[in-house]
Amino acid sequence: MAAGRWVSVTWKVLAVAVVLWLLVVLAAWLLQRQLIYLPDRSAPAPPAGVEEIAYTGADDTELTAWLLPPAEASSPGSPHSTVVVANGNGGNRAGRVPLAEGLAERGHAVLLTDYRGYGGNPGDPREEVLAEDFLAAVARVADHPDVDPDRIVYLGESLGSAVVSEAAAELPPAALVLRSPFTELADVGRHHYPFLPVRALLRDRFPTTEHLGRYEGPVLVVAGDSDRIVPDRFSRQVVEEHTAGPISLHVVEGADHNDRAVLSGDDFLDAVDGFLRDALPGGG
């Protein structure tokens, strides 16, 4: 009798556990985009010396970006390159101004884009439109009188590395920089939520390596070796699996995902600048 009651209680506990797990799975399915995208929706004021660029993205969505010219002392002529930036999943373009200023000091113009739903832009982000929105920004800045369209570079950080990889497969840039890239979003999700069927749940998949396989130009991957959000093994795997063109890896020692060292640190910026001067010789 006691054994029978024990079996009955065990089955009841298991049933409750299964129901709770199914509720967690359902919540993850319903709220997944709130977990992926963490926008600062406020419209930031552009800093001094920044040109505000308006452009039209997918489904006629009106978006805004900031163009920073190269510092005159570092680039007396035209910019060595124009770097178009796709952000990670948090904040907005205001948080990337130190990155842009650091590249401008090294002679590059920088266009800081924001996803829809970020930085005062209307709408809500979703995978199927982000690369198209990004390419609309590229087309807009390519028409700028101070920009050489043959020297446009894409730089994506974290989630943005998947966006620029897809964009590069559609419209190849002169060079591509990926900071803390992942192979595909499901791999990162499984790392953080091993108890969930992440691959089956995801609507926004961001398959970076798949898109990157269609880009034959030069690629620089930068990763922090103490990254707890996108562990550097994923970034190293992006390098190892890429065979379409030249690719190199720069590791920033001791850097976590959102440390200044991989946002706007000198080691990171010098690595990007050196890569671009090798990949795009000559220039302003």
Rank of each mutant, 00 (worst) to 15 (best):
E128H: 09
A131V: 08
G123R: 01
V239G: 06
V19A: 15
E127P: 02
E170T: 13
Y215M: 08
Q34D: 14
E253A: 15
G156E: 02
E127N: 09
W21D: 00
A2I: 14
A139M: 01
S42A: 14
P194Y: 06
G274D: 06
A65G: 15
S180L: 04
D273E: 09
R5F: 07
V153Y: 02
P173F: 08
V19G: 00
L196E: 05
P39A: 13
A3E: 06
L263N: 14
P149L: 02
E253F: 09
A15Q: 12
R277P: 03
A65E: 04
W11V: 15
V163Q: 09
P79K: 05
L38K: 10
A94N: 10
L38M: 09
L185T: 00
W11F: 13
V25A: 14
L22I: 13
P122F: 02
A28G: 11
V252R: 01
A174N: 08
V222E: 06
V19K: 09
G160Q: 12
A27Y: 14
L159I: 11
T113E: 08
L67W: 13
A28F: 15
L99P: 03
A162C: 11
W29A: 12
A54E: 13
P246L: 14
V24Q: 00
L178I: 11
G245S: 10
S158P: 06
T10P: 00
L22F: 14
G102P: 08
E210I: 07
G49S: 08
I152P: 02
I229G: 00
P181H: 10
L135W: 04
L171T: 12
S74R: 12
G254M: 12
W6T: 15
P181G: 06
G274C: 03
A136M: 04
R203C: 00
H242I: 06
T243L: 05
H108G: 02
G217S: 06
P145V: 11
V188T: 00
A71M: 02
V153K: 05
P246C: 11
L111T: 11
A139T: 08
A139P: 02
E210A: 15
H192I: 07
P125H: 09
P47D: 06
P46V: 05
G77H: 13
V219N: 07
G224Y: 14
E72L: 13
V16T: 15
P70L: 07
E72I: 04
T208I: 10
D259L: 04
G189D: 10
E184F: 11
D40G: 04
E157A: 13
A136W: 01
Y215F: 15
D227I: 11
R151T: 12
G245F: 13
L99N: 05
E184C: 00
L67T: 01
A54I: 01
L178W: 11
G245I: 08
E253W: 00
E253S: 14
Y215N: 03
G49W: 08
N258W: 07
I152Q: 06
A48S: 10
D148W: 05
V129A: 10
A2C: 04
L280S: 08
L14S: 08
L212M: 10
V84N: 01
V177K: 02
G284K: 02
L23C: 15
S248T: 15
